[in-house]
């Protein structure tokens, strides 16, 4: 029994490695192929090795993509900020069982479950009925809807770890509601708010399905889609893809590494049962 269990666990370790290969393999292949020589195509074999497509990306494509990149970053920053702000409000209201918070929860769930193409279609039709120009606001609207559930989950997790006695004692010592919030609560949950914002930023940065019908001004993913479906694709696309993946991984690392280390410190490096 015991030994069989150990063999099974070892097998699962191998299995997990294979799954990681399944998840990362395509990305790695893409990254390798982006270093093709000038004659290289979209698949193996490699025809020479070099930075040809990367230089092409930065010298030729960059000017073409510049506007889209700036627009994407702007929307992503706004989405992160708004989603973080909203998630704080909703999470706090939910924790205090304020009226209205019970109505918000199903809506947040709906935001998570609504297929992107449906939301995009609805948004474009709704703007058409209102005679509004499709553009920035509509795009920001659906991006926040997409990012909000994730930001909310982050905030709920943060507030669950937040000790309500801290808040109570501040109030008992005579601090006003606002003072308690700004001087006690906010400094403690600040990292959580930041990760909610970064979550939103990353999701917006890469969002495609909701955006495609909503705006006529291309964001980076929309530009990519146009390149993929209309133009003949070349390995500089792989370079672009590799670059965005790298940027995303840096953000994810920034998001999670402090959390993991914090978790580790709090537990004093011991390995107790996995209770959160």
């Amino acid at each position: 029994m015991r030994t069989r269990g150990r063999w099974f666990n070892r097998f699962l370790g191998l299995y997990f490695a294979l799954i990681l290969l399944f998840l990362y393999g395509p990305i790695l292949v893409m990254a390798v192929l982006s270093f093709q020589g000038p004659q290289g195509g979209m698949t193996f074999p490699m025809r020479g090795v070099g930075l040809h497509w990367w230089t092409r990306l930065f010298e030729v494509r960059a000017s073409e993509l510049q506007e889209a990149i700036i627009r994407t970053l702007l929307v992503a920053v706004e989405t992160g900020a708004i989603a973080a702000l909203f998630s704080v409000v909703i999470a706090f209201a939910y924790r205090r069982r304020l009226p209205g918070s019970s109505a918000l929860l199903p809506m947040v769930l709906l935001a998570l479950m609504t297929p992107g193409i449906l939301l995009g279609l609805g948004m474009s039709l709704w703007w058409r009925i209102l005679n509004f120009q499709p553009g920035h606001l509509a795009l920001l609207g659906v991006h926040v809807v997409w990012a909000l559930p994730f930001a909310f989950l982050v905030m709920i997790a943060v507030l669950n770890r937040f000790d309500p006695r801290v808040e109570e004692s501040a109030r008992d010592l005579g601090a006003s509601e606002a003072r308690t919030f700004f001087e006690i609560v906010l400094p403690i949950i600040w990292p959580g708010i930041l990760s909610a914002a970064l979550f939103g930023f990353t999701l917006s940065l890469n969002e495609f399905e909701r955006s495609v019908l909503v705006t006529s001004q291309n964001t980076l993913p929309l530009q990519l889609w146009a390149m993929l479906t209309v133009q003949i694709i070349e390995p500089d696309l792989y370079a672009l893809g590799t670059l965005t993946v790298l940027i995303t991984f840096v953000i994810v690392a920034a998001l999670f590494i402090p959390t993991v280390i914090g978790q580790f410190r709090r537990l004093g490096g011991a390995t107790p049962p996995s209770e959160e």
């Binding site: 990305i27 292949v29 990353t202 940065l205 890469n206 993913p221 990519l224 893809g241 995303t248 953000i251």
Partner: peptide, 13 residues
């Protein structure tokens, strides 16, 4: 967290 499109593209090679 990476681009959905990029991950789809990466399947081609």
């Amino acid at each position: 967290f990476t681009s959905f499109l990029i991950r789809a593209v990466a399947w081609i090679p």
